[in-house]
């Protein structure tokens, strides 16, 4: 089993963080993983994306050309990445910030009010955690509990309040499915 995932959005939306959490959680479940960010002239407010591969086999290429799963957090990324998704792939998108809708009919489209849910929990920036919660519940690639463990082990400088909030966001995302 190999799942290739691209996460894309604005710099500052926690795109890289969510990719790392996902990769780290994959490692905790003893899977082969790679994480590869877009790098270089990135900045807050600019676009950011990363590729995550989670597999039972050794990972050949960390660059994902045709993802099985897309997590799209902002409007410009929708148009850019939609054509790359494999037929039959799953398209998660952040409905709160994205007004258009994917055009393809050969994919599963899941609209998630990621920012709205995050704001409800009291913090817009945990929209990425809502998405991850939805992802693992819908696809079964990893366990929700592993993601919770992963964020606690990776965000070493975060306050315990923040870590609990992250857990809540993961749970709320998973409760959508």
């Amino acid at each position: 089993m190999t799942k290739e995932i691209i996460i894309a959005g604005f710099g500052g939306q926690g795109i890289v963080s969510s990719g790392i959490i996902l990769g780290y959680a994959g490692m905790l479940e003893n899977k082969n993983v790679t994480f590869f960010p877009s790098y270089g002239a990135e900045m807050r407010g600019g676009t950011a994306n990363c590729s995550v591969v989670i597999s039972s086999e050794p990972v050949a290429s960390p660059i994902v050309a045709y993802p099985d799963i897309l997590i799209i957090m902002n409007e410009p990324s929708l148009a850019r990445f939609e054509p790359m998704l494999k037929p039959g792939g799953i398209f998660f998108y952040n409905k709160t910030l994205i007004k258009s809708h994917p055009k393809r009919d050969d994919i599963t489209v899941l609209a998630i009010e990621a920012n709205a849910i995050a704001e409800e929990l009291g913090q817009g920036r945990i929209a990425n955690m809502v998405m991850l919660g939805a992802l693992v519940k819908k696809t079964d690639i990893l366990k929700l509990e592993t993601l919770k463990k992963a964020q606690r082990e990776r965000f070493v400088k975060a306050s315990s309040e923040q870590l609990s909030l992250n857990d809540k966001a993961l749970e709320r995302g998973s409760e959508l499915y």
């Binding site: 993983v33 990972v59 960390p62």
Partner: peptide, 10 residues
């Protein structure tokens, strides 16, 4: 190369 340097792996 840039990919090996920028990539994360266990």
């Amino acid at each position: 190369d840039g990919l090996l340097g920028q990539m994360m792996e266990p």
